[in-house]
Amino acid sequence: MRRLLVLLLIVLAPLSPAWSAGPSQTMEPGQVLRGRFVQERHLSGFGAPLRTEGRFVLVPGRGLIWQAETPFAVTTVITAAGLVQTAGGTETMRLPSARLPFLSRLYDMLGGVLGGDWRAMESDFATTRSGDDGNWRMELVPRRAPDQVSMPFRSIVAKGGRFLDEVVLAKADSEDFDRLSFLDQSLSRDSLTGAEASLLDSSR
């Protein structure tokens, strides 16, 4: 859960106009970011990484739709109300944000970052930025010792140019890591499709 939220932060944070060495493309209200993703989950002892491909839709102020398509179709919708996961038409998980104080803290951080205020973020992570607008790299290291419950990462590394292109999340306590690659990203002012809108609504 924490991982997901940090990820959310990473995905959204670079869109902030105040992001000096980050994605050069910023989002404006009413814009929708669509794209494809490849998630490689490197687990020690597994012959090959578990690879998931799918599409995502990011709507500022409303939430994120994360649809894995292969090898297994599962849809995750994250909004301010929490997280809902469905697979094969049945709900497999529902986590209301009220149960996770960390979630609202992350929203706070996010709000800060989007507003150009880094203090909330910096209180939890040490950030190192390098490169330029066209090709940047950022490393986040938790200030507190990582643990399974509240901060399950050793480090987070994000790379990109106009958009965020790749995130590597190194897990605490093991050699496992997740690599997320983002492809075919496009900003549009299109309204949401009916299906997308109902997904975002259903998670409330």
Binding site: L4, A68, F72, V74, A87, S174
Partner: peptide
């Protein structure tokens, strides 16, 4: 459920 946790946005899976 196991598969959606493994492949979904939330990675419960630990090797």
């Amino acid at each position: 459920r196991a598969l959606s946790q493994i492949y979904g946005f939330v990675g419960m899976a630990d090797a």
